[in-house]
Design a protein around this nucleic acid. Sequence first.
RNA 1: GGGCGGGUGGUGGAAUCGGUAUACACGCAGGACUUAAAAUCCUGUGGCCGUAAGGCCGUGAGGGUUCAAGUCCCUCCCCGCCCACCA
Length: 825
Amino acid sequence: MPYTTNDIKSIEAKWQKHWDAYKTFKAQADVTKKKYYVLEMFPYPSGKIHMGHVRNYTIADVIARYKMMQGFNVLHPIGYDAFGQPAENAAIKHKSDPAEWTDRCIDQMHEELKQMGFSYDWDREISTCDAQYYKWNQWIFLKMWERGLAYKKVSSVNWCPSCQTTLANEEVIGGACWRCKSQVVQKDLEQWYLKITHYAQSLLEDLKQLEHWPLRVRLMQENWIGKSFGVEIYFKIKGDTETLTVFTTRPDTIFGATYMVLAPEHPLVKKLVSGTKEEKAVLVFIDETAGKSKSLRMSGDGRKEGIFIGRYAINPVNQEAIPIFIGDYVLMEYGSGAIMAVPAHDQRDFEFAKTHQLPMRIVIQNPQEPFELKSMTKAYEDPGVLVNSKPFNRIGNEEAKKKIAEWMSKERMGKMTVHWRLRDWLISRQRYWGTPIPMIYCDTCGAVPVPYDQLPVSLPKNVEMTGQGGSPLNRVEEFVNVSCPKCFKGARRETDTMATFFDSSWYFLRFCSAHNDEEIFSQQEAKYWMPVDQYIGGIEHAILHLLYARFFTKFLKDLSVIDFGEPFTRLLTQGMVLKGGEVMSKSLGNTVDPDEILAKYGADTLRLFILFAAPPEDQLEWNSDGLEGAWRFLNRVYQMVEKRYVKNFSAFDSKDQMLDRERNNAIKRVSQSFEEGFKFNTAISHLMILANAIDKYVGAGLPRLPDGEATSPLRNAIETLVLLLSPFTPHLCEELWQMMGKNDATIVKVAWPSFDEAALKQTEVTYAVQINGKIRGQFTAPVFATQEQLQKLCLTDVHVAKYVPNAGAIKKFIVVPQKLVSIVV
RNA sequence: GGGCGGGUGGUGGAAUCGGUAUACACGCAGGACUUAAAAUCCUGUGGCCGUAAGGCCGUGAGGGUUCAAGUCCCUCCCCGCCCACCA
């Protein structure tokens, strides 16, 4: 047994040391070389790496090494998304410093990443909690502030009572905090926002350019941005000078509006009810709704809460007075916070109308199967023709949408408009462990930006972390009390820190010149390396991170520091790692620690297994049995080199051509897998097929073959196998390459093998014979056999002869070249 | 409710343009080596019938197109993920 756990440990350590010493993966911009930037989503340093990291980074590493062998100048960096709440929570718990905790975690993670043999340019390692990094967060923030893209406003925000901080809409999952899962409540606060909506149009439009992104991700972003075309309609209020604006995408149903509903928070509600007999009840309702969290409000089991406010609106198209309600199913954040209700043609309005016994009117009729109000059990939302809509009756509803919208615009009853689902991005966090927002509040001058030459605004050290009473920074006098940069009078510093998604929205640019003290990044370097050619990460970032990164890229382009509008050319979303059908997670206690696998099998086996078990984008069910298989395969390859490989070898016999065909086929198929969707599982299967062919060629138990002088198919096959395998299991392959007497400094500098299409050609092929649709026999024929020859040959097969007594019985004879013949008798 | 993926042996998964379904591996069974075990190697392995040759069935269900369907079309069932009172 030549290859033991100990051997692996020493081989892997040897090559990791070698790569470090020679800086094998150091990337340097060189305009004479074609670049390739491969990037994985950098980790949050929680300490140990988990299987998800292993899978993500192994995929990236295999791609990076393949591209290196292809002669690309490859940039493959790593860093740490190091700000965030776990560090702060750990600090609260252990009464320690988040910076220390984070540093320890980073050290540990750094070690583990090295043990996996990843081809990182370690000179570019960055951490977002480093002031040299977050200084540029503050720089970006100030640039945005100057352009009106960072602003402060009071609004009802999502508040996590457990984390004691606000959350972005994107961070509220099903009404709960995305991190701690507590119920989120609404709270009025003054907060910092980034105007991502300024880029809504280009964020949507440019999705079209991202043809190498998974369709799924593009659709998710499209839905999130949520552009909808519609009409703003103005309703006068009976006996009042106020006008209510509603937004609808269904102007074709305007004649069916039988009431109106406002969001309870709508600014006009209190004014409109004042003095009515409904006032008291309405105010109680508003209070009750405000106390409810959004998710509670939305969790309605079909029931729609609401109340009449005692006023009427005038439908501009027919002057009808319709009652105004407030209802919890109308959201203040979308549209104008007011809707016209068309219960016959909108399911939500239908439910509300049923609950409150409100009238309905059919205005879209199904011409095939007309229906009546009495028999309706749900709203009719399908296409149809207009009825009860005077000048527009009998028009198809799609056409009517356009006609009515145009007519209303012309008559000034409304205006065609576009609404977006995308909201501005709330970035304020009342936490310590994040980038301080570089603003100062002066009683005289108002909000004043910290001057650029005073950046970074550094986080103070030795801050007491209690987890109570808002941001810990509030209590740090020397941090808070500053003089105003404008008038030099006493002023107060902003104590909110930035959401960590800010940090990760541009780190890929920082990697281009990771330790640049002069600028956010070198424009020249960024011009060379960017955009990222291949980005790899989890589908869970399909919306948040990827949308923010695209937003920042567009902003930086507008600043003219870069000249491209999309950061990631290709995106691969790797599947989750499961155990027992569930995602591996600490809370479920079904994790497998990569360290244990490393200790027993080493990095190469783990890498090979995780790639072989499933295609990169599929879910991966962890099964340790497969590990043994990967281990066995690597052992076979090792022994193949040790026992079968000779530098010069002259044996030659009829099997040579077959072996060489397998060799060429492996090159073709493995290369293909890199170019067509990274199907590494099948790439590895072709390497196994080549290994099987080599063993078969040699014959089991043969002694080491004698040296000779001519080139050898066997030698070529083994060399090819090692080269093709090297991106997957680099340590072993470096070792084998050296054992074979090669002098290359490293295997990644050896050219990726090319294949010879001619060697794949065969002189004879086996044809299957199908008779009346069933496979009945087979025969071999020369590659260039004519149809007549094939017909003759196939009849010589005894099984065929049984079904086809003579050539005259053949009704139809179909040839699929090189594959089969199909006979109808 | 909407969108997007899926459904293939005991298991993970293969299958270019519609062309021999189950590649490759795991597991399992039998054998070789061994005092024995482990490791390694060899053979077999979709189901049913058959000593065999061979036959029939078989890619979630049912229908269709075709010489030929996992793949295309229609109807339906189930599973996963994402979004979701967005007017």
